[in-house]
Design a binder for these strands. Structure first.
Length: 704
RNA sequence: GCCCCCGUAGCCCAACCGGCAGAGGCAGCCGACUUAAAAUCGGCACAGUGCGGGUUCGAAUCCCGCCGGGGGCACCA
């Protein structure tokens, strides 16, 4: 058993941290971070769900803090491209979500000279073809760049900017994400020069440009970007169309200047100097080439993915194994001093207060620098608990190992995980982090694979009356009460039978009473069998044996492909056939009945182990059915004596023939053409062709 | 706005590589057993696959376009 809160486990989180640190994959930086005012801690991007804290649903705000990050972005391309290797074994939904989350886009960095500033400012754009349509520039209000640009503006502008920046800071993520939000901003009194035509562009600060994407600054092309157009209209800034766009029917779209709707599709360049007459793709290639020659632009790639913020201001978690020394700076704790154990919490104020509670444990915080031996302070933050689960699957292979995180030989033998099962809620949290860790560990030479989970199944959830159970809705189903009423076997069977495992189950749609009834029906078979264990099934009723062996032959494949609901349905069929054989067929003494009842018990042990074991022992066995496996399928019993051959005329079923399973194409064609119903349907029309798929189908195509 | 998934009997769901639309269950109805009921056993009925095109000898299945439902991302330049 693994307990990730114990030093025996988090020791190796710290070991991982220092290895990542050594490779430049763990680093500290000041940044505007997600802040949960209720939990009083920072959150990773992945832990902000629709603007709310993943743990407590409080609206998240922003705060400028210096925090620890894992450099997931170093692996952005690999994390994205290797999703392709998971196609087919991972749900396409999860692949799409990760793809979306990583959000790679291709474009160009373009340098804009700023009046009164020595260095030009780079902007990122996916649409360099629209450079001639740029009519102003916008920088993120919360960026360092905005603060710098405004610092030389006159007092009125500075005041206005400061007020605006303050207002924006107070906004929650929810407010920021609102699509109906009007555009706001402040003109900084500064100008940029458009490198393609030398035009002077006003520089504005606004919250619709993000500080931490691209360069935190954009060229605004209002005619061909809706956000820029909204801003231009709100601030009364010029709009210039540089692309004549057509709609799906080839008609020209209305000019954005008039319509208020930016055109983003393909078209022909206008008002764009040397680019005039080119289409979008040609213009992008041409302008990048031209500006690269001039040294003012370069092709560039950007990602939506951010580095993983792992610092938490919580008393539980793994202490970050760093010592801050005035002389040496950040010093990772050496291996032989790990683990850095959490201090005793006695006497500490553990309430969230915006600073790690560990800071109050002064005896613990005050330490000596591992490098120079001088006085130093421990880092007081703890790690995100998602660090624990990013590599636990490797720890499971050697859980007691004391001289390393996991045994590499065991990992070579067992890992990666062939089949992982988990909720879709982890699509871009755990599953992304674990993929990152795996790739990093591979690059450290500790494992020889780059993807941790070869196949993934997202199991569904149990709902009630169309939605997730919740106290406030009052649509709760007590599992304990259901178990009391129907028993664990019936409940488990109900869930398995309700539908494919990846589907949600609505408890209002299923019938645990029906499951209990079925189990009783199956159980009675074992009670009724009156032959001795070990009788030769070959002496039994062939018809029932055929059903038994057909069930067996299908069951393995169905189980392997997780179609448990179908397996249960097949067992139900076998139970029905066996019941019939006992009551009105071969009778309870027939060896085939014993064989069938035993197969029922063996297969049911997957879903209803208690019931199955009881059946097994009632059938006279001393061992466990769970360990008994499945008997081999007798292929001879799968061969049918006759099969029904469907005869179609022009694709419509007109007759059925009972034929031998190895009837030849010619025989079937002849039989079909002679069948009276077929002759009637053909109505004298000449045969054009006859399609024969032995033994089951003949289709006569006639000339009309 | 972009992306992913799903629409088959009253309901939950099967249907292999395109080949008889139905395996199983729930609910329903009928019968046997019973003084009666429960339980049990047996039987019956119910859709032409969301809509419109296309490909094909043949489409629930493949392609295109809609409609409906669920989910993800989103001021990402």
């Amino acid at each position: 058993m693994l307990m990730t809160h114990r030093p025996e486990y988090y020791h190796w989180n710290q070991w991982m941290f220092t290895r990542l640190y050594d490779r430049g994959l763990a680093y500290r930086k000041p940044s505007l971070v997600n802040w949960c005012p209720n939990d009083q801690t920072v959150l990773a991007n992945e832990q902000v769900v629709a603007g709310l804290c993943e743990r407590c649903d409080t609206p998240v705000t922003k705060k400028k803090l210096t925090q620890w990050y894992f450099k997931v972005t170093d692996y952005a391309d690999e994390l994205l491209d290797e999703l392709e290797t998971l196609r087919g074994t991972w749900p396409s939904k999860v692949i799409a979500m990760q793809r979306n989350w990583i959000g790679r886009s291709r474009g160009a960095d373009v340098q804009f000279v700023i009046e009164g500033r020595e260095a030009p400012i780079p902007i990122y754009t996916t649409r360099p073809d629209t450079l001639f349509g740029a009519t102003f520039m916008v920088v993120a209000v919360d960026s360092d760049l905005a603060a710098e640009l405004v610092s030389v503006a006159d007092a009125g502008v500075q005041e206005e900017f400061a007020a605006y920046a303050e207002r924006v800071k107070g906004d929650t993520e929810i407010e920021r994400l609102s699509t109906e939000r009007p555009k706001t901003g402040v003109f900084l009194g500064r100008y940029a020069i458009n490198p393609v035509n030398g035009e002077r562009l006003q520089i504005w600060a606004s919250d619709y440009v993000l500080a931490d994407y691209g360069h935190g600054a954009i060229m605004a092309v209002p005619a061909h970007d809706q956000r820029d157009l909204d801003f231009a209209r709100a601030m009364d800034l010029p709009v210039r169309t540089v692309l004549n766009c057509l709609d799906d029917d080839g008609n020209p779209l209305p000019d954005p200047t008039e319509s208020g709707v930016a055109t983003t599709g393909d078209g022909t360049l206008i008002n764009s100097g040397s680019l005039d007459g080119l289409d979008k793709a040609e213009a992008i290639t041409a302008i990048i080439a031209e500006l690269e020659k001039a040294g003012t632009a370069s092709a560039s790639v950007n990602y939506r993915l951010r580095d993983w913020l792992i610092s938490r201001q919580r008393y539980w978690g793994t202490p970050i194994p760093i010592v801050h020394c005035d002389a040496c700076g950040e010093v990772p704790v050496p291996d032989d001093q790990l683990p850095v154990k959490l201090p005793p919490t006695e006497g500490l104020d553990l309430k969230p207060k915006g600073q790690s509670p560990l800071a109050a444990a002064t005896d613990w915080v005050n330490t000596t620098c591992p490098k120079c031996g001088g006085a130093a302070l421990r880092d007081t933050d703890t790690m995100d608990t998602f660090v624990d689960s990013s590599w636990y699957f490797l720890r499971f292979l050697s859980p007691g190992k004391t001289d390393g995180p996991f045994d590499q030989a065991e990992a070579k033998k067992w890992a990666p995980i062939d089949q992982y099962v988990g909720g879709v809620t982890h699509a871009i949290l755990h599953l992304l982090y674990a993929r990152f860790f795996t790739k990093a560990l591979r690059d450290m030479g500790m494992i020889d694979f780059g993807e941790p989970f070869t196949a993934l199944l997202n199991q569904g959830m149990v709902q009630m009356d169309g939605s997730a159970m919740s106290k406030s809705r009052g649509n709760l189903v007590s599992l304990a009460a259901q178990l009391d009423e129907f028993g664990v076997d019936a409940i488990r069977l109900t869930m398995s039978f309700a539908g494919p495992p990846e589907d949600d189950i609505d408890w209002a749609d299923v019938s645990p009473a029906g499951s209990a009834k079925f189990l009783a029906r199956a159980w009675r078979l074992a009670r009724d069998v009156s032959s001795e264990p070990g009788v030769d099934p070959a002496l039994g009723d062939r018809e029932l044996r055929a059903v038994t062996h057909r069930t067996l032959s299908e069951a393995s494949e169905l189980v392997e492909s997780f179609r448990f609901n179908v397996v249960v349905a097949r067992v139900m069929e076998l139970v029905n056939a066996t019941r019939k054989a006992i009551d009105s067929g071969a009778g309870a003494t027939d060896p085939a009945v014993r064989e069938a009842a035993e197969v029922v018990a063996r297969l049911l042990s997957l879903f209803a182990p208690y019931c199955a074991e009881d059946m097994w022992s009632m059938l006279g066995h001393e061992d466990l059915v769970a360990l008994s496996g499945l008997p081999p399928v007798d292929p001879a019993l799968l061969v049918q004596e006759t099969v029904t051959c469907v005869v179609q005329v022009m694709g419509k079923v007109r007759d059925r023939l009972e034929v031998s399973p190895d009837a030849t194409e010619d025989e079937l064609r002849e039989l079909a053409l002679a069948a009276p119903n077929v002759v009637r349907a053909m109505d004298g029309a000449p045969v054009r062709t006859v399609i024969v798929r032995p033994p089951g189908l003949v289709n006569v195509v006639v000339r009309k």
